[in-house]
Amino acid sequence: MNNNSSASDLIESLEQLQTRLNGFAAQLASNQLPFWLPGLKPANLSSAAALYSDIWYRDGRDGRTTISHHGLIGADAALIKQALLVNQAKCEFQRHATQYRLSKDLPLQQQLHLRSEKLATLLHFQGASRLHLKQCYRHIPVLETAPVKIGFSWYTSGRSIKKLTPQQALDRLMKMDTSQTHIQRQIEAVGRLRPGDLLAQIQTLAPVIRANMLWKEQDQLIRKAKNISLPILVALNPANPVLPEYNEPPLSPPDTRSRLERNDLKIDPDLFLPSLRAHRYLG
């Protein structure tokens, strides 16, 4: 596949995503079923539609963060279908964007903006400079059968832990400014490690809302949990449109971690290589 066809496929998949988002937003605006949208201002379906449709970076906003709101929106079959079509388009766009490395190919982004008048107009009026890939990729959460209960809670203990060998750590340090004293000290520290030693590169994840869902089917209780960054669409019976039972968590996460640290933690809490956020494993 040549570069021109790659760009064309990518642009087409993004335009398809935008078209389906527009269709979903229009369908959502006509929705007559109950909803709960805490913290969204104004707390109406137009605001929710804008939240689902936001796939662009905003000026002055930290590009590493995503706009997140939890909530529940009752949905009929037509709205559920539109949401699933959006999610399908998101998968297709992510496939192309990953294949063509859109996040690192600025000329291709510029070509995308120039080739599509519709998208260029959208960029102008929304004050957006480039795509927010995480918000492009994240799916609209859809429950095609309504649970009896949904419990929302803040999850503040999330961490990403990646293992590094001494050689991998050394390779990364050598790519930094080795004239700096603190880098030289870390290189020396790596040199004192044994070949079989491992390091833990730790990143604390941002707090997220987790939805704990409960279904009752015959004599069985079925539980599922999922992190939520967008309001959940819940399929409701139009003849009896009642949202599942739910709680109302605080709008902002607690200041402290929600779980105690394990007593058998095997990672040294003190940083061993600060420039890599790397810790030693305790023997």
Rank of each mutant, 00 (worst) to 15 (best):
Q184M: 09
G127K: 08
K226Y: 03
G39F: 07
R101H: 14
G60T: 04
N31D: 10
A43H: 03
P195H: 03
Y246A: 13
M1V: 07
A43R: 05
W36C: 05
T204A: 07
S153Q: 14
L37Q: 06
A26T: 13
L271D: 01
L84K: 12
D270M: 11
T178Q: 07
Q111R: 13
L205G: 04
L273N: 00
R20H: 09
I150P: 05
L21R: 00
I55F: 05
K224I: 03
A211Y: 03
L40E: 10
I161Y: 10
T178F: 04
Q220F: 06
Y246W: 06
L10Y: 02
L114N: 13
Q99P: 01
A50K: 15
R130W: 14
L33Y: 04
T98V: 03
R210T: 12
A48H: 00
P244V: 02
A50P: 01
R280W: 11
S53P: 04
Y137H: 05
T145S: 13
K81Q: 15
Q18F: 02
R223D: 06
A89K: 00
D197V: 02
P241Y: 07
K163L: 13
I150Y: 05
S46V: 09
L112N: 04
A89Y: 00
R172A: 08
L51S: 03
L133R: 00
I202M: 07
P249M: 13
K104E: 12
P195G: 01
P254V: 09
E217H: 10
Q167C: 04
I67C: 05
R130H: 14
L10R: 08
P274I: 02
D171E: 15
G63P: 07
I228H: 10
I267Q: 03
S157W: 08
N4L: 12
S46R: 13
N2P: 11
L214C: 10
T145P: 01
M1T: 09
K134R: 11
M1D: 14
L243I: 02
P231C: 08
Q16F: 03
T181S: 10
L164M: 14
N247A: 02
V190G: 01
S258D: 15
Y281E: 07
R101N: 14
D264I: 03
R61Q: 15
W215R: 07
Q135D: 12
H124W: 04
I67F: 06
F272P: 01
M1Q: 07
